[in-house]
Amino acid sequence: MRILKTCFSKSWGGLEIYSLTTILKLRERGLNPTLFSLKDAPITKEAKARHINTVTIDNAGYINPSGIKKTIALMKKENFDIIHCATSKDLWLVTPALKLARLNAPLLMTKHMGSYVVKKDLLHRFIYKRLDYALAISNVIAKNLVDTTPLNPDKIKLLHNGIDTKFFDPAKYDGNKVRSEFGIKDDELLIGMTARFSPGKGHEEFIEAAQILCKEYNNLKFIIVGKASRGEDDYEIEIKDAARQSGIGEKIIFTGFRKDIPDILAAMDIFVFPSHAEAFGIALIEAFSMAKPSVCSASDGVLDIAVNEATSLLFEKQSANDLASKLKRLIDDGYLREKLGANARQRAVEHFDIEIFTDKLIAIYKEALNEK
């Protein structure tokens, strides 16, 4: 099966990383995927470093006759069985190319983020009509597709993202390495979050909850892992300033970007996922896979992952008081921490493993081909 995976993004984040992960998993299964991306984009450089078959284009704007022409030539030459777009924006290049070239290959798109713009006008109906399936990474994204696009619900399929639960395996990591690095004592509980610095990720509530808890407990430390998104350095500065002014700055650790996320998670006693409106939550299932009890905002894609009182405790989003209250339960109850962590690991393995994702994706590809 020859697959063209498009990703015309200039950024480097979860969407781009997951696009490459998908390609690598398809290649492992004996399929033949090719990445179609922007010439100087980070994803292109990373793909070539991983020896992924890659073709590039200089730009991929909404109206791009030269890009459409190049896409037509590529598709005719390679005769792909499946075209799979990483974003809806990719359709503006791919749909006209398929139409003009009169090619019948199934067209799929993965929707990673919700949109607030309704796209049901004549032009968008043309762009989306050629689509065989839209893959939504969570139920909230599936609903968003129904609300904002001209797609029929029967063209929308739920396909949760996945992670390598054999890599994120608590049996393989010793949290003492990171705890020693940051001077965390044996009798201290380490509460942490992993997220890029971007408004809406919940850093403010995390710090406010830490302030509330430190009034009652003297054995807590808090760790914030990640760096600013492109163009959002000012937000990172604001959060670090808030931590310094909180009166508990010495108890809050900022690690910056880390590649050793399993080691970081192994060091944590409690994981916090305070995002205001997350489409899904890869960081959360990584924590689940590492058997971490968690406190999560009760909203959006989190509800596809976390099960209240079974894997996690859910709190009212943007409420530092409720977050602190739920954290207090876990701080006070070691048995509950252990139970939630074990359940979280089981849920990650049974529902969110990358091999499960790959099985389902290949099945969708085959279904799309059979319907042509």
Rank of each mutant, 00 (worst) to 15 (best):
L15T: 09
C85H: 02
P65A: 12
S11N: 15
H84C: 04
L74G: 05
T21N: 14
L24D: 05
N64F: 08
K69C: 14
G67Q: 02
K69G: 08
M75H: 02
D147S: 11
D58G: 07
H124S: 11
A134D: 03
A60S: 14
D58V: 13
S115Y: 08
L26S: 03
T149E: 06
K111N: 11
T149I: 03
N144A: 09
A142T: 07
L20Q: 01
C85Y: 07
L98C: 01
I72Q: 06
L103H: 06
D132E: 13
A60F: 01
N144L: 09
P42H: 06
T71Y: 01
H112W: 02
A49M: 12
N144P: 01
W92L: 13
N53Y: 13
N79W: 05
K120W: 01
K48V: 13
F126L: 13
D40C: 07
V94F: 07
N59L: 15
G61D: 10
W12C: 04
L103Y: 01
N79P: 05
I83V: 15
L100T: 09
I82E: 03
P106D: 11
I127R: 06
T22H: 07
M113C: 14
L15E: 10
S19M: 06
T22E: 09
A97W: 00
Y62A: 15
A97H: 04
M109W: 05
I141C: 08
H124Q: 12
